Every structure is written in structure tokens, then in C-alpha cells.
Amino acid sequence: MHHVRLKNIRLYAYHGCLPEETLIGSDYRVDIKVKAPLGKAAQSDELKDTADYVTIHKIAEEEMKTPSKLLEHVARRIAERILKEIPVVASGKVKVAKINPPIGGDVASVSISYSFTR
């Protein structure tokens, strides 16, 4: 298996349990790593044979636009769409981090990691 990674996708979104989080929004960072057999793509030089990082990025952007209470929910949606839309992907991990979370302390970010498999 081979890997495709998207690191530090920076987005602004409206996730959280507090009402002000869904009104004001916050900065987020998304990291995605997928495992896929990329030998065919290495030989064919065809986009259809790989885990296209442009498609993965688009999925992350679109799913982050839908507000959720929990980061886990957003990560699951991203993972499910990757599996649905990119058949070559066998498994992966989505990490979603909220920058400067409103937790009453000096914390740079909080994050969750969500692993998935076909």
C-alpha cells in the first residue's frame, strides 16, 4: 500500500456545541492520510488510477461547510465520502483540529483523529 497525504488544510467553519460557535465560527485544520495501491497509477500516469488529492481536498472543504456539534461527526462524513468517491482508497485517517477552542484556557488547538477502512 502507498499513501497520499494532505497536511494542514486550513478552513473556517461553524462547528461546536455552544451556540456562539455556530454563529461566530472558528479556524480549523484538517489533515488527511489515505492508503491505496498506487502501482497502477505509477505505470499508467492516469488520474483515474490514483487517490486524487484535489478530490480529497474538495470533499474536506465541502463537509467542513456543514455545521456539526462534534468534530468526530465531521471527520466521519469526510471519511465516508472519500470511500464512496475514490474507489482505490483502502483505508485512511482524518484529523480535524479546532484552533483556539473556547475552553477557558490557553490551548492552541484541540483535535480528533478518525481512522476508517473499506
Rank of each mutant, 00 (worst) to 15 (best):
H2D: 15
H3C: 01
R5K: 14
R5D: 12
L6S: 06
K7C: 04
R10E: 10
R10S: 12
L11T: 07
L11C: 06
L11F: 06
Y12S: 14
Y12R: 15
Y14I: 05
Y14S: 08
H15C: 03
H15K: 08
G16V: 08
C17W: 14
C17A: 13
P19A: 12
P19Q: 05
P19R: 00
E20K: 00
E20W: 01
E21G: 04
E21S: 05
E21Q: 15
E21W: 04
T22K: 15
L23H: 02
L23G: 00
I24C: 04
I24Y: 00
S26M: 01
Y28S: 07
R29M: 09
D31R: 14
V34Y: 10
V34I: 04
V34C: 03
L38V: 04
L38E: 10
G39I: 00
K40F: 02
A41Y: 07
A42H: 05
Q43E: 15
E46T: 00
E46K: 14
D49P: 15
T50K: 13
T50C: 14
D52E: 14
D52S: 08
Y53E: 12
V54N: 10
T55W: 06
I56H: 10
I59Y: 04
A60G: 10
E61C: 11
E62L: 09
E62V: 09
E63W: 09
E63I: 09
K65Y: 01
K65L: 00
K65M: 02
T66S: 06
T66P: 06
P67M: 03
S68I: 00
S68V: 02
S68N: 10
L70I: 06
L71W: 03
H73R: 13
A75I: 01
R76M: 06
R76V: 14
R76E: 13
R77I: 00
I78F: 12
I78P: 06
A79C: 12
A79H: 01
E80F: 10
R81D: 03
R81S: 05
I82P: 01
I82H: 07
L83K: 11
L83S: 07
I86N: 11
I86Q: 13
P87W: 11
P87F: 15
P87A: 10
V88D: 11
V89G: 09
A90L: 12
A90C: 08
A90V: 10
A90D: 14
G92T: 09
G92L: 11
K93N: 13
V94Q: 12
V96I: 14
V96Y: 10
I99H: 13
I99V: 15
I103H: 07
I103F: 08
G104V: 08
G104F: 11
G105H: 13
G105I: 10
G105F: 12
D106Y: 11
D106Q: 12
D106W: 08
V107Y: 05
V107C: 14
A108D: 15
A108S: 14
A108H: 03
A108R: 01
S109W: 00
S109L: 08
S109P: 02
V110N: 03
S111I: 04
S115K: 02
S115M: 04
F116H: 01
F116I: 04
F116V: 08
T117I: 02
T117R: 01
R118L: 03
R118K: 15
